[in-house]
Write a protein that binds this DNA or RNA. Sequence first.
DNA 1: ATGAAAGCGCTAACAC
DNA 2: GTGTTAGCGCTTTCAT
Lengths: 351, 351
Amino acid sequence: MYDVAERSGVSIATVSRVYRNPDSVRAQTRERVLEAARELGYVPSGNARGLASRTTGVLGLCFPDYADPDAEADAEADSDADDAVMLYSDQIIRGMERAARRHGYALLIAASLEGGPESLVAKVAGRVDGFAVLAQTVPTEDLEVISRRLPVVMLAGPREIDHLDHIVVANADGERELARHLIEDHGLRRLAFIGGEVESPDAEARFRGFQQACRDAGLPVPDAPDLRAEMMTQAEGARTAEALLDRNAGLSDSERPQAMLFANDQMAVGALRALERRGVRVPEDIAVTGFDGIPLSRIVRPPLTTVRQPIRQLGEQAVELLVQRLSDRERPPVSLMLPVSLARRASCGCG
Amino acid sequence: MYDVAERSGVSIATVSRVYRNPDSVRAQTRERVLEAARELGYVPSGNARGLASRTTGVLGLCFPDYADPDAEADAEADSDADDAVMLYSDQIIRGMERAARRHGYALLIAASLEGGPESLVAKVAGRVDGFAVLAQTVPTEDLEVISRRLPVVMLAGPREIDHLDHIVVANADGERELARHLIEDHGLRRLAFIGGEVESPDAEARFRGFQQACRDAGLPVPDAPDLRAEMMTQAEGARTAEALLDRNAGLSDSERPQAMLFANDQMAVGALRALERRGVRVPEDIAVTGFDGIPLSRIVRPPLTTVRQPIRQLGEQAVELLVQRLSDRERPPVSLMLPVSLARRASCGCG
DNA sequence: ATGAAAGCGCTAACAC
DNA sequence: GTGTTAGCGCTTTCAT
């Protein structure tokens, strides 16, 4: 910048103005500066600018490194599938990027990776004006500290820190509607719910929706999932499906569960495969459902009945909240709940 | 940082060390500093750090804002499709993010947006250690200037600036293989190629591959596409398909083209729809092929025979090149060509 | 309309 | 092991 100033015979202040506020500089002077900049290959330092102006024009996103090994394997085996499998995080990124662009921000993304005091978040946090965090990505204590300095919005998780904005999807409502569909529309009465990790607030909320549906229908209300998976992966889905089958081996047809409701799609997909191996037909012998609406859910046979999450919107709303808060730090924290929708497909007997 | 230093009774240099090189500080001192930092809600400024150390730990990606309006419409009409439609850019982002993470970098992404002297690239360029640009996203002159200061890799385009690293996919090879397949395996001899914009190097390279296949097979070699679309969108694909139909209306069956090869999938998909409306059966009456291997190509009926691009790898390789160049500015510019693969599906008569 | 000068928060030599 | 001290390249009053 000093070089540009010297070369064009002005002060660095003027060079600065040319970029920040072009109209405040005489056209002729401006041209001279721009010309010099071009000749010198001048690229303004975002760092210096950020340091001096205390803003970056960048919003951030931290998401977990989580990748289902089975999904990866699918992609390996069928290169065709690779293209189609859009991850949760991909969609959030897309949503955030679009919204950020509308507001003139760029997006900095980083998946969690362990580290010392110099963790992932710290890195991101130091380079953005505000950021979104996917639940279970960042230690709460880190967030606690960081959120004192800049806006943070929590995505798809419980509000771990009460002064943060956060956005969740209607997990309970979705599962309730799903179960209602099975009960009322398909006349099923014996439903098995396969939950996830106890610490997964999403999975727990879905179970509560399931309970609610049972209650609404006058069916017995379980006080815990029939089974819990450790990881919510395809492998665990397959394992739990088989466990359930084994457990019910001795029962008569009129006692056996008529449906397995999994806490997410990954598990349901794994279950579908396990059931096929065991020769159990879906949906004739038993209905299977998931939750999330991942692309894979449409591709498997039979296509999986599930609850679709508005993931793109999650990203878009995150940006809106960040932008709002950036302009008004005092606004009380908000908590958005995004609606979900039922995707009725063949695995429950529809279509 | 000064506050942290004061509160923990050390100098700012020590605070800095705690974060940058923890082992160079006595454990006890370190704890004291960390404690103070926690209490004060200290978040190191990436800007200041970047300014002082002259590196950011961030790599960038600039991609075009391009979104096929028809694809958007699809997503609107069938919310189910939305999830599945993964964009070119999404996959590159994914590839780059993964690779960047492996090397300890975060990723800054931004889609092109018009602006004054303060353009998109400038913003990104000033905040990263190096970045990748998708072809046709950034004015060549801007790149020219910026690439003098930091590593830039050009993606999927011609090497507009000869000292830049760049990566392309094997467009010509792919189209040649595709045409060879139609000619040899399906015995077709009258092929029509529908090209794209003249300025699209990809489309042109594909046409050259087509020519080569004709030459190889001893068929007449056209010196220009049978038709050119302006935009390479679904709408244009539909329009050109109908134009071709009309043009050939007077021909006998033995003169009419037996296949339409489109320069990309979007157009081919649009064509599929137009042909269906006209009552022309695919592949019975005519074969149709695309190029790219977008997810939609699998979903349409009949599934589209196409050439799959290794888009994720494009992103991964981009990061590798950037990292390499960051460690050796003198390395001569490299030019990678990534191999493509044929996806034989129903629209050409396979499967 | 333009210039001068004071930081912005940190890193990296170099002393101690 | 820890402190001192220069900047890093810009923005931003305040003058002129």
